[in-house]
């Protein structure tokens, strides 16, 4: 190195934890672009997706990511999510593929009446979308700190031809060498944010000024209480439980999904620092707001074996 000392490089001997996480994620994203036949990025519109997308933009700057985004729309997402999604992808000039399980829509599958709603409109829809387009590698924004079975999942996670995850047959994953080879019909889910925590995500959003859906910030919104959750009345399809009337409450969301299944928290955090402050002082994990995890301890492991992302 010519003149490394005189240019002040010694001062940067240590990278910060966010720099290391960012570098690792970008490395993973580029590796997929280089080795996959037809990759796609699952874009759920949430904060983790926002960070993943931001990293993808950085990975290929000044060019664009060489893969499209895929949003599996259950048709029950918050309206703000759809508006944000469309604005973001237009602003960044990216291709967005929206996939809706039209058969499920025709059959009137909804989160109120059907136990299999998530399975049909999300899990099955995702598999159908991947099969239809022939995507062999799909990026997902899951993090290992979210849940116990995720903690053991590889960054490059293989799925059989019917999209099943076999936790006992995971490939060893060494150093930063990812084996992307697969047999015919198999596909790979890749999780570039595996080593990020919820706090890392928020700090990075703050550091990089990454836009996120306004629902993460507190505002007066019409709500009802059902099954121990505070739910937002996002449109006229919401079923109001007997004895409830929609009430304006100051709320925000820690995670985003289908509005009839996503619990809000009462909050006054209207800015990013306040949201982070609240998160740091809070006493429950972010998954508590999701109906999907609470059945049994091993529920996520089971769901993933069946093909849930």
């Amino acid at each position: 190195m010519p003149d490394a000392g005189s240019s002040g490089l010694q001062a940067v001997a240590g990278l910060t934890h966010l720099q290391r996480l960012e570098a690792e994620s970008i490395h993973i994203i580029r590796e997929v672009a280089a080795e996959a036949e037809k990759p796609v990025m699952l874009y759920s519109v949430g904060k983790d997706s926002a960070v993943m997308l931001h990293l993808a933009m950085k990975a290929f700057a000044p060019g664009k990511p060489p893969f499209p985004l895929l949003h599996v729309n259950t048709t029950w997402k918050f309206r703000d999510m759809i508006a944000f999604r469309d604005a973001q992808t237009t602003a960044l000039g990216l291709e967005l593929i929206e996939w809706i399980n039209q058969d499920g829509v025709a059959r009137g599958i909804n989160p109120f009446d059907h136990d299999a709603y998530t399975d049909i409109m999300k899990t099955e829809a995702l598999k159908a979308a991947l099969d239809h387009h022939g995507f062999d590698v799909a990026f997902g924004g899951a993090r290992r700190d979210e849940e116990k079975s995720r903690a053991k999942e590889r960054i490059f996670s293989f799925r059989s031809a019917d999209h099943r995850w076999d936790p006992k047959r995971q490939r060893p994953e060494l150093w930063s060498l990812y084996n992307t080879r697969k047999n015919k019909g198999e596909s790979i889910r890749v999780f570039p944010l595996s080593n990020w925590t919820e706090l890392d995500i928020w700090q990075y959003i703050a550091r990089e000024s990454i836009p996120i859906v306004p629902l993460y910030f507190a505002a007066m919104r019409p709500t009802v209480r059902a099954n121990g959750l505070t739910l937002m009345v996002d449109d006229e399809r919401m079923r109001i439980p007997a004895g409830e009337t929609p009430e304006l409450r100051m709320i925000r969301f820690r995670t985003l999904g289908c509005y009839p299944l996503t619990g809000a928290v009462e909050s006054h955090a209207t800015t990013l620092p306040e949201v982070i402050q609240e998160m740091l002082l809070t006493k429950t994990s972010e998954r508590q707001g999701r109906a999907i995890d609470r059945d049994t301890t091993a529920s996520m492991e089971k769901k993933k074996q069946e093909g849930y992302f």
Binding site: H17, R144, D145, K148, S149, R150, A151, K152, P167, K168, Q170, S194, N195, T197, L199, D200, T297, A298, E301
Partner: peptide, 28 residues
């Protein structure tokens, strides 16, 4: 808290590498 896969919980052993995260004021 850390034995994540149900097969592991049943057998009371750890089968696979699990990754955990925590931070202090100084380090992640």
């Amino acid at each position: 808290l850390v034995d994540g896969l149900s097969a592991e919980r049943e057998q009371g052993i750890t089968i696979d590498v699990a990754y955990r995260f925590f931070s202090t004021d100084r380090r992640k």
